[in-house]
């Protein structure tokens, strides 16, 4: 699962403490990286809506907070793009929706 999906799914779960719940701990062995075309406008729109804390838990390569002028900061946006869309982890998220989701299935045909 891409970190963006994870971030969207956990972004507004009721009763979630900031930084808590539904953590996606990515094990190095579970990670795959696939290139995705970079779309600066799209990533810039995403930044203010992300749960930055949840992202940091999974990806230490990011700054503790979005850069102040992130919209024009291509290097920053590329880093966010990479973490959100190119890295795919197979971690085991905790059930976020009152038990609604159970751990992911084994990867399909080589994917993660």
């Amino acid at each position: 699962m891409k970190l963006l999906t994870h971030n969207l799914l956990c972004s507004n779960v009721r009763g979630l403490r900031p930084g808590g719940g539904f953590p996606l701990r990515i094990q190095a062995s579970d990670v795959s990286v696939r290139p995705v075309p970079f779309n600066a406008a799209f990533v810039a729109r995403l930044v203010p809506r992300l749960r930055w804390g949840a992202l940091l838990e999974a990806a230490e390569s990011l700054p503790p907070e979005p850069a102040p002028d992130y919209e024009g900061d291509e290097a920053f946006l590329r880093r966010v793009h990479h973490v959100l869309l190119e890295v795919r982890g197979g971690g085991t998220p905790k059930p976020p929706f009152g038990g609604g989701l159970t751990p992911p299935k084994p990867p399909l045909g080589g994917g993660v």
Partner: peptide, 17 residues
Amino acid sequence: TNINMVQCDVCSLSDSM
């Protein structure tokens, strides 16, 4: 490259997002 999928019962998503 910009699609992901989640296996779940949509009926269990209500109220959560």
